[in-house]
Simulated scan of single mutants.
Amino acid sequence: MTQYIYQARVRWADQDTQSHVNNVVYLDYLQEARVDWILDGPHAELLDHGIAVAAQHVEYLAPAHFGGDGIVIRLWAAHAGGARFTVAYEICQGDTLVARATTDCAPVDAHTGTVRRLTDSERAWLDDWSGPELHFRALPHADRTAGLGYTYPVRVRWSELDPFGHVNNVAFLTFLQEARIAALEEVRSSEGWGRPDADISWLVAAQQIEYRSPMSYRIEPYAAELVVLHVGSSSMSLEVHLRDPQADVLHAVGRVVLVCADAQGRPRPISERVRAALAPITVAGESGPGVR
């Protein structure tokens, strides 16, 4: 298997309050590696015409830190279909595998702005980088309608746009992060999450996002509708729908698994205070129907 190697430098601003690389920043590293790989190949024009990101899945295995070893990303083409290909990644810091991920991509027709089929030349290039598919544990999801759970107003920043005037795929993960922090703001403040000396934190174990429709810049906020799908002894699963409340358009569906941890990163039981705060925005209870 041939892998493309990309070295990412961790910036000071990439850290969260636990001095770990923030979960969203990993997607930024993946994007940089993917762009570098394309520009270094025979089809750099793909970036001029546009590549639509259809979905991404990240599994976080260990924390990464500022200083010391840089981030090394190994990527390859895990699958190539008629009009879509999947890029797989292993993200390491030193000898530690800190994350695995995949990105589903589709080339865009420069004239129509719609997804097109891969050319024979593009497929041959992808075959040169072909490798095994990565398999992840399926994240819980639920059948539900708009307006349930907690709604957070998402305001797009001008700096979050890509060269085509759409909200960049990485920014969607920032919106998911903002929504879940805001949903638990009251209990977060009372339990002291986020302080540098806090003995409790929430670690992102895995997250997945499916992109349904491009988002554009505007002054009016979009809506992030968050529900809790499952609460275990030390972890919880959430789902967030990013919508345009004016046009009733679904832009993305994100799912995340969070683990409650102590200062050393070891799982700890979820408190009754947190469970009580989650109850009003939990879909079908902890194990009821509707959650798969």
Rank of each mutant, 00 (worst) to 15 (best):
V240I: 14
S190I: 14
W202A: 14
S271N: 03
T102N: 03
S237M: 05
S235A: 15
P163G: 08
I51L: 15
P267R: 13
V291S: 03
R144K: 11
S271C: 10
D16P: 01
Q31W: 06
A138K: 12
L46I: 08
A284W: 00
P214K: 07
V10Y: 02
D120T: 14
C260F: 03
A88D: 06
V187Q: 04
R123T: 14
V10A: 03
M215V: 15
T17P: 00
V108W: 00
L250K: 05
L176A: 02
M236F: 05
D40V: 04
C105Q: 13
G70L: 12
G165W: 02
L61Y: 05
R195L: 13
V283R: 10
I200V: 13
L242E: 00
V274H: 00
S216V: 14
G288V: 07
H141T: 14
A223R: 13
E239H: 01
G81I: 02
Q3V: 12
V58G: 00
N22T: 11
R266Y: 03
A261D: 01
L242T: 09
E220A: 15
R123Y: 04
A146R: 11
D199I: 06
L229G: 00
V154W: 03
G285S: 10
V231Y: 07
L242W: 02
F136S: 10
V253A: 08
R100H: 06
Y29R: 06
W76S: 01
E220S: 14
T17C: 04
A279S: 01
G265Y: 01
I73F: 00
V259L: 04
G192S: 07
M1F: 04
W129P: 02
V274K: 01
S190H: 15
D40K: 14
P132R: 04
A277W: 05
R212T: 09
L75R: 01
Y26P: 10
E178H: 12
D14R: 04
L126K: 08
H241T: 00
R266P: 00
D244Y: 02
I51H: 05
V231N: 06
V274L: 15
R180P: 08
R266W: 01
L139I: 13
R144I: 07
L61C: 09
E272C: 09
P107R: 10
E133T: 12
F136E: 07
V283F: 05
Q177N: 12
G149D: 07
M1K: 05
P107L: 11
L229N: 01
V108A: 11
H241Q: 10
I181Q: 12
R212A: 04
W125N: 12
S121N: 11
H251F: 10
R34D: 08
P107H: 12
N23T: 11
D28T: 14
E225L: 10
P280H: 03
R275N: 02
G70T: 09
A99W: 06
T282E: 11
Y89D: 05
S287R: 15
L173Y: 04
V291C: 07
S287F: 08
A33G: 00
G149E: 01
T17S: 03
H230A: 10
Y60W: 10
L161A: 08
A55Q: 09
P132S: 11
V24H: 01
R137K: 14
H230Q: 14
S19Q: 12
R275M: 08
A247Q: 15
L118R: 09
L250R: 11
S121W: 05
S235C: 13
L226I: 13
A206G: 00
P267D: 13
A64T: 12
S130F: 09
R157W: 04
R188I: 04
